[in-house]
Amino acid sequence: MKRYLRNPVAVLGAALVLAVLGMGLAAPLLFPGDPLGLAGRPLQWPGANPRFPLGTDPSGRDIMAQIFHGARISLLIGFVATLVATAIGIAIGALAGFYGGWVDTVLMRLTEAFQTLPNFLLLLVLVAVFGSHINTVTVAIGLVSWPPVARLTRAEFLTLRTREFVQAARVQGLSDLHLMLREVLPNALPPVIVYASVVMAVAILLESALAFLQLSDPNVPSWGNLIGLGRNVLRVEWYVSAIPGVAILLTILGVSLVGQGLNDALNPRIGK
């Protein structure tokens, strides 16, 4: 923790994430109305009307309100999808790496299948089949994001299971469950936690891309959605697309920096 706070870049990342989180939490207080409701004349440039500091979109909705409410959606999707992906990834990677043999072969074929399939294409198919409700989209993003987590966890388990302290616990007659959960997992977790930040960044990007293609839930204020709407007026009112893009960029930047900071704090090899 101390090591993390001494790293100014990591602190900047945390500040960015906290700012986005703050926006999300403050959204219902600052913009109690429906962010997707009609607010004023469409396509007002930012600054033109003091009521809408960031202007209005082609449907006359307040962009600022959408940005604040969108923060909530992005973080929520990112967080839940990451949870789903890491849970699946750790479970599959741990079993494959710990047991090896045919368990490993079967699980790795499955992982390979998921990785051979372009993840965005699979996401499109999942949304096409199960619909684009926000919950479905979130779970679908989690479902397409777990393979790298599984590979990473498996690699960690593969090296750790041959380490002497795991063998020692085995010789002591402790159960597989104990070996996996108490001996191997705590040592395998740090790189996986660091990687979770990458999963979260990718999850937020996937959702915004889906929304940009108008395939995500149209009933929630999503940054990607807004960029997609702005596309039709891109030549003149490019600000409609530009503003939510900056919001996504800063959020991803914050998440990545937090991941990097965690990496430096948890694996202090480079510092030495």
Binding site: E164, V166, A168, V171, G173, E183, P186, N187
Partner: peptide
Amino acid sequence: RQAAAHCVQMVFQDPYASLNPRR
């Protein structure tokens, strides 16, 4: 494994690798 543990135990080579660093 549980039964064998009472018969025979092992002392390992590498004192740095044979203890779980996080426990």
